[in-house]
Every structure is written in structure tokens, then in C-alpha cells.
Design a protein around this nucleic acid. Structure first.
Lengths: 234, 234
DNA sequence: GGCACGCTTCGGCTCCGGTCGAACCGTCAC
DNA sequence: GTGACGGTTCGACCGGAGCCGAAGCGTGCC
């Protein structure tokens, strides 16, 4: 068989294969655009090296850039890219935890993080469970009851449905090994949760944390459910 | 942020990043186990080089091997690996077609191929459409009507449901850009189609082709639907 | 204007990893 | 046994890619 009849996956894989670039891409999985300097720090390389990596990622279409003053903010080029990184993470070994600080950071990410633009980790899995448990979702369809609940929360379900992106796929969580809500609906719900201040961005690029209002709001929305683990991460 | 708190995706990506290894993995997407020599030919490298690549893939857990006499047959290490390759293919550029022969091969693969262990290409997409169009599937659930139809075909739906693998996810087809049936159910259905001789393995590693019985059988099963394109690939 | 800062470009260094031929090991055929 | 064949291992070669310091470019601040 002639290999040229197939899509050429090697070049894209090569872009992800470098440790510095992988670190950059993983940091961008947080969904926010980050400045080149920050990314250099994240990847543990000099600004010169990071710049060269970013140029290659840009050329390969994995990231996009916007200039703002003397900063250049980089972000992932789309949710398909995020999907590739998530799927890769699922079959990659989790490196051993080396320090107390790392262990705390790891636990923060396991608890609640963004997966590009939707909620993941224990919180994301629990949210999907709660939606299903309250009969808001049937497969990928939103039930009438779900429409009411989401509308009350401020989620524009109809708008999410109009996008070309898949509506409400399950996204297998690589720390929990169980699904959380992805797709256009997952992104819309997560955007609302952040706007309302129920979750806020944490100190790590991908981490988010539940706020006091969030705890109350979610408890009212899903009575009898606990959306996060009982012991806060310390 | 410390990058060690995340799964490190770079090593796995590096395994896929080499053109020869990518060709080997893509060939193994056909779902069959192939001998080392065949894979060397497919990748366009010497047996020595291929052997070194296969050793690395084995070490990285991407492939498995079984010895049979003086042959060693390699296969993908699981459907998660196949998933990674498919997702990567989706964001990778399709290389330009260079010759008539390649163009014919490409058209064969577009028409019908296996995606590790389930049917893909136009045929796979049409099959999912037919199942949905006849009310056999509702989201990921099999309807009573679907149970009857699949049982008549000889698919053991209950057994597919018992596996730990996801039951009936949609798998976005990278040539058609529309979903086909994946997961445990997709694999079970495809196995039956091959057992019955409705499809048979083609000359290319991943290609399959509809047989005469297959055309009749599918037409009887899904009256009024055409499961493949009207013009045969020549 | 002048300086500080963020980022990129350039040049040169180093090293990892892909490549093959040749030799080696095991299996099958006769 | 002996030869053919499939596959792996070894050793040597070579090119590409990652790395950094220094210099260059543009923007913002005072």
C-alpha cells in the first residue's frame, strides 16, 4: 500500500512531540490566550526558544495569535486541536508526582479544570451526572425540563444548537475516566458558570475553583446533589 | 505552572511523529495483524529499520505482537490507540494525490474501509444513517425495533453492551466529515458483516468491499436505501 | 527623545534519532 | 544436516532539530 493515499498524521504529531511544545499546548488547554513570555516560563525554555516553537505551532495551524500592544497572545486554533490533546492524554502515562507542591497542584486540576472551553475534572463529571440525574439530558438531546433549567441559568441553548460544532458530546475525562459534558452546550454552560462567578479561574493555567455563590447556586439548582468532593483541596 | 502535574503527551506523540512509524500505525488501522516484513514494505524502509521502529512502538504500548512460527504479527494495542490516530487524521492535511493508481486507492478507501474494527468511509456513514433512518438507534440507545433488526442480522447486542468499552459512540469519519458507528456496537456489527461475507477485505490493508450478497442483504434489511455510492470504483 | 520591555531573528553549537549493511538467531523445508 | 527465509541486533554514519546568547525590532512609558 502506498502511504500517500492516507492523511499525513506525522507532521502534526511531530509538532506535539517536543516536550516544550507539548507543555505550551497543554497550558493552552485552559482555554485562555497566554502571552509568549508566560508560555516560555511554562515550558521551561528561554524566550528565544519559545518563540521558535510558537512560530512552528502557528505555521502548523495548531495555535492562533493576536497582538495586543507589545504582547502577543497565543491560543489553541480550535476545539479539534483540544480534542487531539485530550485523547492523547488519555493514553499517555501520568508522570509520578514528585513534590508536595506538585501533588497539591495535581489535586486542584483533578478537582476542577477547563478542558479548552468546558468544565472537566471531578466537577465536570459531577455536573453531567447531575444534569442526567435530573432528567435534563436524554442522550445528546435536551429535554423540556432541561430547557427550563438551562434557560433559568442563562444558557442560550438554541444558540449552542446553531453552531456547526457537535452539540452535546460526552468527553471522556482523562483524570476521572468518566465522561463530562463537551461540545457547544458544554462550552455554553461553562461560559455562564464563569460569567456568573460560580467558578473562577485559579492560579494554574487550567484550574478553576468553585466559589461560595457557586456552591449555593448549584445546590439550589440540583437539590440533594453534591457537585464537588466533600473535602476542599488544601 | 509545573508541567509535571499533567499527563505528558510528548512521548506518545513522538512515537507517532516519525513518517515510517506513522505509516505502520496507519496500516494497522485496518484492524488486522500484519507481519514485520509487510510493515517494512508499507513504510518504505529496510527490515532493520522497521524492526527498530516496531520495538519502540511495542515499548511505548502502541502495538502488540504475537509470534507465529518464524513470523511476528503486529497489531494496534487497543481501540484507544486507533482513536488517537483517527482524531489526528482529522486535523491533518490530506496530501495531494499524485498518480492514477493512488487516486484509485484513495477512492477505494473513501468508499469503504475499516477504522480499526468498525466500518468507515461512505459505507460506514451510510450504515449509521440507515440505522437511524429506520429508528434502530436513539442517541446511543438501541430501540426495540433496532434490537429486532440487529438480532436478525446475528449481532449480539447484549454482549456488546457488557464490554467496558463505550457502547455506540459516533466516530467522526475523516474522509466524509460525518459520523459513522463506532464503539462496541460498531465493532460487533462490522464483525458480523465480515463473517457473513457481506463485506470482504480488499487488497489494501484498510480497504473492504461490498459483495453481491452484501448488496442484496443490506437492500432487504433497509428497503429503499442505497448503502454505497451508485458508481462502483474502477 | 530616550529607555525599558516583550518578542523575534540570527548564528553557531550539540546531540538525538533515523538509516542502512552486515552479522546473528531461530524456524521451516527438504 | 544444510540451506533459505523472516526477524532482530550491532555499529557507524549523517542530517535535522532543539538550545541559547546576542542583536534587532517594535511598542509603551515617562
Amino acid at each position: 500500500m502506498d502511504r500517500h493515499t492516507d492523511a499525513d498524521i506525522a507532521p502534526v504529531a511531530a509538532l506535539i512531540a517536543d516536550p516544550a511544545r507539548a507543555a505550551i499546548l497543554t497550558a493552552l488547554l485552559g482555554g485562555r490566550a497566554l502571552a509568549a513570555g508566560e508560555l516560555a516560563r511554562v515550558a521551561g525554555v528561554s524566550p528565544a526558544t519559545a518563540s521558535s516553537h510558537l512560530a512552528r505551532l502557528l505555521d502548523g495551524g495548531l495555535v492562533e495569535v493576536t497582538r495586543q500592544g507589545r504582547h502577543r497572545y497565543y491560543r489553541l486554533a480550535g476545539h479539534e486541536i483540544a480534542e487531539v490533546l485530550e485523547v492523547l492524554a488519555r493514553i499517555s502515562a501520568r508522570p509520578p508526582v514528585r513534590s508536595l507542591r506538585q501533588s497539591r497542584q495535581a489535586r486542584l486540576l483533578q478537582e476542577a479544570r477547563t478542558c479548552y472551553d468546558h468544565l472537566a475534572g471531578r466537577a465536570g463529571v459531577a455536573l453531567l451526572d447531575a444534569l442526567r440525574g435530573h432528567g435534563c439530558l436524554d442522550g445528546e438531546r435536551v429535554t423540556p425540563q432541561g430547557e427550563r433549567l438551562l434557560a433559568g441559568l442563562g444558557v442560550d441553548v438554541a444558540r449552542a444548537r446553531r453552531t456547526r460544532r457537535r452539540f452535546a458530546p460526552e468527553c471522556l475525562d482523562w483524570t476521572e475516566r468518566r465522561p463530562h459534558l463537551g461540545g457547544a452546550l458544554g462550552a455554553a454552560v461553562t461560559a455562564v458558570l464563569l460569567e456568573r462567578g460560580w467558578y473562577r479561574r485559579g492560579s494554574l493555567p487550567r484550574a478553576v475553583e468553585l466559589t461560595g455563590e457557586g456552591r449555593e447556586g448549584l445546590a439550589a439548582l440540583f437539590p440533594g446533589k453534591e457537585l464537588t468532593s466533600h473535602s476542599p483541596v488544601t
